[in-house]
């Protein structure tokens, strides 16, 4: 055993530790200038390389130990990061201190090669001399290339309904459909209190249908004397209960902020606010924009209280739901 160990050690020393004698070279034949050695830098590089491998081993150990240690991610990142940084420092040290430092000057490539240009032009021009109708040929080539390109691109039309855009106006709301909460429980008018706001969906929609832009509502209650709905929205509220589309008409985010004025001088009126770009809508006046970038009023769904006190839709939104597109104002929401 000891003999084997000794043999291995001596072999390693012989192989690695032996300072190699460089063949003396005549100076004038060198390309890279000769420079003296730098023992301190060499030792520092060796130390850094050693440190780097110990960090790498630490990474493997932390990985192997896994969840049994706290803050595993931090230790993993620190170990791998430090291993890499030690190696990087070693490399930069090699670059700055251990390889010959030299600054060389040479000519930039010429600005152009007129002779070669001439030859290329000649080859191209001379190759086309058998064509007598070269303009037609070019036209034909262009036509073939263009139409072939179109043909190759044509299947991409199947990606989606390019021209069938009727869906943008469809909503799941019908007259008589009840408003339910996230769990499917129908809202009663008495559930809706002031200074709070509620998420509502049409009754009987699947989880997937709930994701449709026109499905979700933000429901609030205002004192009836504060309502100032324009004439075309008269009767859209159920005794002060208002059901607006939850999707902002600016960029389609959900309106999840309701500023019910708690401090009159600062916030005189209630407001529905989108947290993406802070489009602010006045629910008392039919969802008109009072601040922020939205360019269109928030669509309002007419609702009524049925004989049992449940909230039901009276019809459909007064305008298309969701972010605008060109011509959006021409249309009405459809069931």
């Amino acid at each position: 055993m000891t003999r084997l160990r000794n043999a291995i050690i001596s072999a390693l020393v012989l192989l690695l530790g032996r300072a190699r004698r460089r063949r003396p070279r005549r100076e004038e034949t060198r390309i890279v200038p000769p420079q003296p050695g730098h023992l301190a830098a060499e030792l520092a590089v060796l130390a850094l390389l050693g440190l780097s491998s110990s960090c790498a081993i630490a990474f493997i150990l932390v990985y192997a130990l896994g969840d049994s240690i706290p803050n595993e991610t931090q230790f993993l990142g620190a170990a791998l990061g430090l291993a890499l940084l030690c190696l990087a420092t070693a490399l930069i040290l090699v670059g700055l201190k251990l390889v010959p430092s030299e600054e060389v000057a040479e000519e930039y490539p010429p600005h152009e090669h007129p002779h070669e240009q001439q030859l290329i032009a000649e080859v191209i021009d001379e190759s086309g001399t058998r064509f007598t109708r070269s303009r037609f040929f070019k036209l034909g080539l262009l036509g073939a290339g263009g139409t072939l390109g179109l043909a190759i691109l044509a299947p991409a039309v199947s990606f989606g309904p390019l021209f069938r855009v009727g869906d943008f106006l469809q909503t799941p709301w019908r007259r008589g459909r009840r408003l339910v909460d996230e769990t499917g429980k129908p809202y009663k008018a008495s559930d809706i209190s002031e200074k709070n706001f509620y998420l509502a969906f049409p009754e009987g929609t699947s989880d997937e249908e709930k994701e449709q832009m026109a499905a979700s509502l933000v429901v609030i209650r205002l004192p009836q004397k504060e309502l100032r709905l324009p004439s075309h929205l008269k009767g859209y509220d159920a005794n002060g209960i208002l059901a607006y589309s939850r999707i902002c008409t600016h960029a389609g985010c959900a309106i999840t902020l309701y500023r019910a004025p708690l401090f009159q001088p600062d916030e005189p009126r209630p407001a529905l606010v989108c947290p993406c770009h802070y489009s602010t809508f006045d629910p008392a006046t039919g969802g008109t924009v009072t601040f922020g970038p939205a360019g269109r009023d928030l669509p309002l769904l007419p609702v009524y209280k049925d004989s049992k006190g449940y909230l039901r839709a009276k019809g459909n939104f007064d305008g298309p739901v969701g972010p605008s597109w060109w011509g959006v104002r021409l249309w009405k929401a459809q069931p």
Binding site: T73, Q74, F75, L76, G77, A78, L80, G81, L82, A83, L84, L85, L87, A88, T89, A90, L91, I92, V94, G95
Partner: peptide, 15 residues
């Protein structure tokens, strides 16, 4: 060195 160093800093940040 710069490549290894950039990678090292990214892993430090990531961890």
């Amino acid at each position: 060195g710069l490549m290894v160093g950039t990678t090292g800093i990214l892993f430090l940040l990531g961890g």
